[in-house]
């Protein structure tokens, strides 16, 4: 069974710079794997621990330096990975991104049964790319997944957390699942994983490689655009009270609650 895990490199700090076109300037930012994608990787690796003949491919769309996070994924135990990168991809919104990633999955990996994404990326926070990948591939979809329960006879059963409780869903494979924070700790890199990661060949695929045209990708292929980006008003930063007695503290809080 082939699993594709979609991961994204996100800035690690609150230092965000925007280009003149109001897209994110990723130059010089410290980057990490999107925290939700770490859970997506862990979910894939847990499936590999439990079942035979599982092959996991990690892929990312981004600038060439996103190769780092693919190596990192390999150090965790992922089998291989690649980067989808092309200047023409820049400025893509979720519709264009989902289309690009879906095309890469069907062109560059054979017979993918399961695509795993993180529920959100901490930079964009749209939660739309996973569902968009599923529509482009015409795969079954479940979002807000907390746990994979089992995979058998062409079906995957998952637990999904919604506002009022936990649903158990049975999806026909092939499927796309989007993972939210799980109740378990993601694993740390393996020692031989580091060596494997260093040695691994990470192919880059361009727009031509994945068979898309310029009007379907990047800013041209995106139906939305940012017209303005602005920092919200900093409304907080009030009074701090030190050396109050317990009763005075209580009174202050009650005053604030009634205000």
């Amino acid at each position: 069974m082939n699993i594709a895990v979609c991961i994204k490199q996100v800035p690690d700090t609150a230092e965000i710079k925007w280009t003149e076109n109001n897209t994110i300037d990723r130059n010089g930012l410290e980057s990490v794997i999107n925290p939700f994608d770490v859970y997506a990787l862990e979910t894939a690796l847990r499936i590999k621990d439990k079942y035979e003949n599982i092959r996991i491919t990690a892929l990312t769309m981004g600038p060439p330096q996103a190769e780092e996070i693919i190596r990192k994924a390999i150090s965790f135990g992922v089998d291989n990975g690649f980067v989808i990168t092309d200047k023409k991809f820049s400025g893509a919104d979720t519709v264009a991104t989902g289309r690009t990633i879906a095309n890469a999955i069907s062109k560059c990996i054979e017979n993918v049964d399961l695509v795993i994404c993180g529920q959100f990326a901490t930079d964009g926070d749209t939660a739309q790319t996973g569902p968009t990948i599923s529509t482009n591939l015409n795969y079954a979809l479940a979002t807000y997944v907390k746990e994979v329960l089992n995979i058998e006879n062409g079906f995957i059963t998952v637990k999904k957390e919604v506002e009022d409780g936990i649903e158990t869903l049975k999806l026909k494979l092939p499927a796309v699942i989007c993972i939210q924070k799980c109740d378990y700790e993601p694993r740390r890199p393996l020692i031989d994983g580091f060596i494997k990661a260093q040695k691994a060949e990470i192919p880059y695929y361009s727009m031509d490689d994945i068979g898309l045209e310029a009007d379907k990708v990047g800013i041209k292929g995106s139906p939305t655009y940012v017209s303005k980006a602005f920092r919200p008003e900093q409304k907080h930063g009030g009074e701090i009270f030190e050396n109050l007695t317990t009763q005075e503290s209580v009174n202050k809080i009650i005053e604030a609650l009634n205000d």
Partner: peptide, 16 residues
């Protein structure tokens, strides 16, 4: 919409 966990707001328009 807020992005980057509310550190930045963006006004987004749609072409279609």
């Amino acid at each position: 919409r807020p992005t980057f966990g509310g550190n930045l707001m963006a006004n987004i328009l749609c072409k279609n």
